[in-house]
Protein backbone atom coordinates (compact mmCIF):
# COMPACT_ATOMS: atom_id res chain seq x y z
CA UNK A 1 0.00 0.00 0.00
CA UNK A 2 2.55 2.55 1.13
CA UNK A 3 4.92 1.44 -1.62
CA UNK A 4 2.16 1.96 -4.16
CA UNK A 5 1.51 5.51 -2.89
CA UNK A 6 5.19 6.36 -3.22
CA UNK A 7 5.39 4.70 -6.64
CA UNK A 8 2.50 6.65 -8.13
CA UNK A 9 3.44 10.00 -6.58
CA UNK A 10 7.00 9.65 -7.88
CA UNK A 11 5.58 8.85 -11.29
CA UNK A 12 3.40 11.98 -11.09
CA UNK A 13 6.38 14.10 -10.03
CA UNK A 14 8.47 12.77 -12.89
CA UNK A 15 5.64 13.53 -15.29
CA UNK A 16 5.43 17.12 -14.01
CA UNK A 17 9.20 17.53 -14.27
CA UNK A 18 9.17 16.15 -17.82
CA UNK A 19 6.56 18.76 -18.78
CA UNK A 20 8.81 21.39 -17.19
CA UNK A 21 11.71 20.14 -19.32
CA UNK A 22 9.58 20.32 -22.45
CA UNK A 23 8.60 23.90 -21.56
CA UNK A 24 12.23 24.97 -21.20
CA UNK A 25 13.12 23.14 -24.42
CA UNK A 26 10.34 25.02 -26.21
CA UNK A 27 11.74 28.34 -24.99
CA UNK A 28 15.25 27.26 -25.94
CA UNK A 29 14.18 26.44 -29.49
CA UNK A 30 12.03 29.50 -30.22
CA UNK A 31 14.29 31.98 -28.46
CA UNK A 32 13.83 34.74 -29.66
CA UNK A 33 17.22 36.06 -28.53
CA UNK A 34 20.41 34.41 -27.30
CA UNK A 35 19.84 35.38 -23.65
CA UNK A 36 16.42 33.70 -23.66
CA UNK A 37 17.99 30.49 -24.89
CA UNK A 38 20.71 30.59 -22.21
CA UNK A 39 18.15 31.24 -19.48
CA UNK A 40 16.15 28.25 -20.72
CA UNK A 41 19.29 26.10 -20.75
CA UNK A 42 20.01 27.06 -17.13
CA UNK A 43 16.47 26.08 -16.09
CA UNK A 44 16.80 22.84 -18.05
CA UNK A 45 19.92 21.90 -16.09
CA UNK A 46 18.14 22.40 -12.78
CA UNK A 47 15.10 20.38 -13.84
CA UNK A 48 17.32 17.54 -15.09
CA UNK A 49 19.07 17.55 -11.71
CA UNK A 50 15.76 17.28 -9.86
CA UNK A 51 14.58 14.52 -12.21
CA UNK A 52 17.71 12.53 -11.36
CA UNK A 53 17.01 12.96 -7.63
CA UNK A 54 13.47 11.58 -8.04
CA UNK A 55 14.90 8.72 -10.09
CA UNK A 56 17.24 8.02 -7.17
CA UNK A 57 14.33 7.75 -4.72
CA UNK A 58 12.42 5.57 -7.19
CA UNK A 59 15.21 3.05 -7.70
CA UNK A 60 16.29 3.29 -4.05
CA UNK A 61 19.92 3.88 -5.00
CA UNK A 62 22.31 6.72 -4.29
CA UNK A 63 24.25 6.45 -7.54
CA UNK A 64 22.18 9.24 -9.07
CA UNK A 65 23.33 11.69 -6.41
CA UNK A 66 26.79 12.04 -7.93
CA UNK A 67 25.29 12.48 -11.37
CA UNK A 68 22.97 15.20 -10.09
CA UNK A 69 25.86 17.05 -8.47
CA UNK A 70 27.91 16.80 -11.64
CA UNK A 71 25.04 18.26 -13.67
CA UNK A 72 24.73 21.10 -11.17
CA UNK A 73 28.45 21.92 -11.40
CA UNK A 74 28.62 21.75 -15.20
CA UNK A 75 25.41 23.73 -15.56
CA UNK A 76 26.77 26.56 -13.42
CA UNK A 77 30.08 26.77 -15.25
CA UNK A 78 28.40 26.50 -18.64
CA UNK A 79 25.86 29.23 -17.99
CA UNK A 80 28.48 31.59 -16.56
CA UNK A 81 30.69 31.07 -19.60
CA UNK A 82 27.79 31.70 -21.98
CA UNK A 83 26.69 34.81 -20.08
CA UNK A 84 30.23 36.19 -20.20
CA UNK A 85 30.32 35.46 -23.89
CA UNK A 86 27.15 37.52 -24.39
CA UNK A 87 28.64 40.42 -22.48
CA UNK A 88 32.15 40.56 -23.94
CA UNK A 89 32.19 38.34 -26.99
CA UNK A 90 34.87 36.13 -25.45
CA UNK A 91 34.88 33.61 -22.63
CA UNK A 92 38.36 34.00 -21.15
CA UNK A 93 39.66 37.52 -20.65
Amino acid sequence: MSVAILHWSLLAAQFLLSIAMLATLYRMVIGPRAQDRILALDALYVVALLLLITLGIRTNSQVYFELAMLIGLLGFVGTVALAKFLMRGEVIE
Binding site: L6, L17, A20
Partner: peptide
Protein backbone atom coordinates in the same frame (compact mmCIF):
# COMPACT_ATOMS: atom_id res chain seq x y z
CA UNK B 1 7.89 11.89 0.76
CA UNK B 2 5.03 11.85 -1.77
CA UNK B 3 3.70 15.23 -0.67
CA UNK B 4 7.17 16.80 -0.70
CA UNK B 5 8.14 15.39 -4.10
CA UNK B 6 4.87 16.26 -5.84
CA UNK B 7 4.83 19.75 -4.27
CA UNK B 8 8.39 20.42 -5.37
CA UNK B 9 7.73 19.13 -8.87
CA UNK B 10 4.59 21.29 -9.12
CA UNK B 11 6.50 24.43 -8.11
CA UNK B 12 9.31 23.66 -10.56
CA UNK B 13 6.81 23.05 -13.31
CA UNK B 14 5.03 26.33 -12.51
CA UNK B 15 8.34 28.14 -12.95
CA UNK B 16 9.13 26.49 -16.27
CA UNK B 17 5.53 27.03 -17.37
CA UNK B 18 6.22 30.73 -16.76
CA UNK B 19 9.17 30.52 -19.15
Amino acid sequence: VSVLVVGGALLTMAGCFGM
